[in-house]
Design a protein around this nucleic acid. Structure first.
Lengths: 104, 104
DNA sequence: TCAATACATAAGCAGTTGCTTATGTGATTC
DNA sequence: GAATCACATAAGCAACTGCTTATGTATTGA
């Protein structure tokens, strides 16, 4: 779970779509695959990449494997991003709102 | 300058190193290449990728081309990240500090 | 226990990536 | 204006990626 794995995992649009879908709520690999237009092994491989990047974690439930967003990966990106805060324009309203949320 | 270009640009460790070096201060491609162990064309190609991703911008100065961090790319990543704020653990102190900086 | 289900792994392949050397293009300097 | 310097582009190539089909491995239920 290093920086390289993280950015490389997010570099693929299909994996970002999977991640985004999981962010809406945890689900198993089969449900996750619905409407994505890829084979079952492809999904399994993508989930493996996301998992070793720390973006997703799994929990076996019977013969299903439930996947959910792992905050660790997101935290790592936030830390990477924070290194460059000197370059952020002051007018990022969305981010300001985010910070206010975090103060609660 | 879409999301795909952004994450794909950051997926390469050499490009992240270039970006990090530029974050410490703008400089031209030759100075940037010092100690990086890649050829001049390789550097030119990396800078081209970073530029079309919106992470870096250039300004010709005589026969030199000065490169600097483009805040647009970072803003875009921050926006992407903010979509998943629901999953951030409350204890991200670094980010909290960042937010306080931005309120000024 | 045997068939079915959910998922992972193996193997192979076409397309992409990052690098190199070679060459082209502006800008400067003599 | 010819040589030089800073950088970009072209072409080619080895390595990597993301996909497929085929097969393996747990888990469940009849």
């Amino acid at each position: 779970m290093n920086e390289d794995d993280l950015f490389r995992a997010l570099a693929d649009p299909t994996r970002r779509a999977i991640f985004e879908k999981l962010a809406a709520g945890s689900m198993n690999a089969s449900v996750l695959r619905e409407g994505m237009g890829i084979s079952q092994p492809a999904m399994s491989q993508h989930l493996s990449v996301l998992r070793s990047a720390g973006l997703v974690r799994e929990e076996r439930q019977g013969r299903f494997v439930n996947y959910e967003v792992d905050p660790d990966g997101l935290t790592h990106i936030a830390q990477w991003l924070s290194k460059y805060r000197a370059y952020w324009p002051a007018r990022i309203e969305a981010l300001k709102a985010l910070l206010k949320d975090m103060d609660q």
